[in-house]
Design a protein around this nucleic acid. Structure first.
Lengths: 124, 124
DNA sequence: CTTGACATACGAATTAATTAGTACTATACA
DNA sequence: TGTATAGTACTAATTAATTCGTATGTCAAG
């Protein structure tokens, strides 16, 4: 089942990235990973992961006392959804002006482009 | 002067797009444009534009009784900032995986790519 | 058995974003 | 002249996102 909002909030995304890295994660796992970056309460992480579960981004099962969470969808699918939403909102749905911006602001270089061209060759 | 947050909230962006289109706009102009899409109060638009001004996205001058707003920065600059912020947040700062997603989810086609390659040729 | 460590459940405070109401002012014009 | 109109100023309500505290339960070690 597709999540209703294609977009994760910044904090939700931060947590999802960590869960995707791990495939399986407890609240404690994520809590400890987040702690390395910034001060945060254990229950905050718990709340966020519960929210992600009710929104359909995470699935949980109980293992002993704790819940073990895992992603409900592959990372690529969710990221593509976020990208699409961004393009809709910022570029009115067309990806081409995005590319123009990337090139003009020098956020991509020629060698990246070449890599992509090769990818397209493989796909078609 | 660079705005502190490179990123506009969704509602702020919606208004900025309309101001960029017009170069000059009063609250009423934007209010009427927004009304065509959805119900909204005049004062809501006024508040948002005041916020955009204090955040440094809009400049205003008084003309007769009303303020006339205009963009403080070119659209391309602000959009590039948003794009950079998005890439940082979602793709950890590197644009290449973004391109991969665009290609794999078929959001760009080959002809778009060719256009870009030509652009790069022109730039260098 | 009691206690400490660690987990969830539940409720709620805080902060950010969005929306809008009311009071007041200046101006055009009947 | 007074009244409707169109504007700002100021305040605040609402909704969404983020953060965390307290209560409670379970289990393992002493």
């Amino acid at each position: 089942m597709r999540p209703k909002h294609a977009t994760l909030t910044p904090q939700e995304l931060e947590i999802m990235k960590l869960v995707w890295q791990r495939e399986n994660a407890t609240v404690r796992d994520i809590y400890e990973a987040l702690l390395e970056k910034r001060k945060i309460a254990y229950t905050t992480v718990m709340t966020m992961m519960k929210i992600l579960e009710t929104k359909g981004y995470l699935k949980k099962r109980r293992l002993d006392r704790a819940f073990v969470y895992r992603p409900a969808h592959p990372k690529s699918q969710i990221i593509s959804g976020m990208l699409r939403e961004f393009i809709d909102r910022v570029f009115n749905g067309s990806a081409e002006p995005l590319l123009v911006h990337l090139v003009q602001s020098r956020q991509i270089r020629e060698k990246d482009l070449e890599k992509i061209v090769r990818m397209i060759e493989e796909i078609k």
